[in-house]
Nucleic acid binder design. Structure first.
Lengths: 222, 222
DNA sequence: TGGGTCATGTAATAGGTTACATGATTGC
DNA sequence: GCAATCATGTAACCTATTACATGACCCA
């Protein structure tokens, strides 16, 4: 019961533009649908082989466009049929996992400043996101007149903008509320300074190394 | 380099309420953070064992609450420290995968009605989502006065409502635009009826069986 | 006494990222 | 000639869901 979404992205891209190589696809995915989709080479290349094997795509005119000989692919008729069939199926709920919200939910275990930092971080990311979306939109508008995919692409962009703006609005309000909490902490919050501050394990701008494994060093009951 | 988010959810839940069993946790996750998080037993139970092994949690008062003896757990001091440490780390971007947007992006390959159906579907899901969030909010308000977690929980709920409402607004506009497209199809769309309709493979309410594998039946060039 | 659901757990499998390996080609 | 990047691919590893197995307890 593989859902094999990667395969359908490939079919979809080839329906828009034939003769793409795996490398091209990765690039296109990043630049066009990167806001809501991602694929790694580890997915793309094996998927291409499988798709050729089952006849949904075929090796195409592998034009050596300046660069090295790249293996390009085209959609076959069965491939196009399969794409349409998939398009007509109800979409799946994306598995809901939002680490930001999870940390906010557990926020009272930390000082309010921690949550404030997260919200500020979110705001920054969303501002960048919005700028990015607007840029894409502008470059798309500038282009050519008669692209039939356009209305659909604009709709996806539009949802992105709408959600990002809404999140930004929420962020402002959230910062206000969290600031209010900052004052009231004395009475309700857990004892942060329980033990005398040993190592300064909290630096302002922390970097997530490789993300720490939970398996390593329990270092509790010695 | 495991991120092991499942483990942190467990720590977080135990920081809110001690003496939870794996079963309890699954239930709590569904009812409280279900909007933005999920865990399966296949994750929870092994994680519990690992966490005990490294001393971040410990078997607690396994009260046989009416039911069978359930193994409950409590947070240890190292566990609490670890949770706080994790909370202070920057949050990760959730991998962006939204099948709805993907289908909409490739929408022109299908008839506009297909995209319209998807948007309507989305609207329905979002209406249910919003109702659900409001319900949670109401039941939370009704409860008890002095819960220090409250402000944080309300913030997560608030973001949920904001985003869902924004998506619903977008949906209305999107439906209007897609209807407009419906008329203009004749000139621009690909030939849907290319082959004479063989089997009625398109029923109105399709059910995703098990989601079809891309590996099975290419059934094209016979 | 037997069905339902509570509760814990494991195995199989899918899905995905990361890191690495390997050349070819272009531009300097 | 050499560095950078283009391009393809693979192996290792994690993460996650699903399906299944098992047994206890409650209630009718």
């Amino acid at each position: 019961m593989p859902s094999n979404q990667s395969a359908y992205v490939i079919l979809g891209l080839l329906s828009i533009q034939p003769n793409l190589s795996g490398y091209d696809m990765r690039k296109m995915i990043r630049s066009s649908v990167g806001y809501f989709w991602s694929e790694s080479y580890g997915q793309i290349y094996p998927a291409l082989k499988r798709l050729v094997a089952v006849g949904l795509i075929a090796p195409g005119n592998s034009v050596a466009t300046g660069r090295k000989q790249r293996q390009a692919y085209v959609l076959t008729e069965p491939g196009r049929a399969r794409l349409r069939q998939w398009l007509a199926l109800p979409f799946q709920n994306d598995p809901p996992r939002n680490e930001f919200l999870l940390k906010l939910f557990f926020g009272r275990e930390a000082a309010p400043e921690v949550s404030i930092a997260h919200v500020r971080d979110l705001q920054e990311r969303n501002r960048r996101m919005l700028a990015n979306l607007l840029e894409i939109e502008a470059s798309a508008q500038a282009g050519n007149p008669p692209n039939p995919h356009f209305p659909y692409w604009m709709l996806t962009l539009s949802l992105g903008k709408t959600l990002t703006r809404a999140a930004l609005d929420w962020g402002e309000a959230a910062l206000t509320e969290l600031s209010a909490l900052e004052g009231a902490v004395l009475s309700t919050a857990p004892a942060y300074g329980k033990r005398p501050k040993k190592q300064g394990a909290e630096s302002g701008k922390q970097v997530r190394k490789k993300h720490g494994s939970i398996r390593s060093k329990a270092r509790g009951a010695k």
